[in-house]
């Protein structure tokens, strides 16, 4: 899967590490912060949606009885 610069920027903003020096798309200054956050989550969801996952792939956690 190829990432565009825009996608790369959007994903970097979302990381908890506050990726200060990585590729980023600054949020538009005229939008409310809540909208900025919702937009970032939407872009994250869109980036994940483009990813094709083999049907047999299980999530990366285990339940241990």
């Amino acid at each position: 899967m190829k990432l565009t610069r825009r996608e790369l920027g959007a994903t970097a903003v979302a990381t908890v590490a506050a990726a200060t020096s990585q590729a980023q798309t600054p949020p538009p200054p005229d939008q409310g912060i809540a909208q900025v956050v919702r937009d970032a989550n939407r872009r994250n969801a869109e980036a994940l949606a483009k990813f094709e996952i083999p049907i047999e792939t299980e999530p990366a956690f285990q339940f241990r009885a």
Partner: peptide, 14 residues
């Protein structure tokens, strides 16, 4: 590996 790392981490942590 070519993955949307930031989107993945952002979604999981959030």
């Amino acid at each position: 590996p070519d993955f949307p790392h930031g989107a993945l981490a952002g979604t999981v942590v959030a």
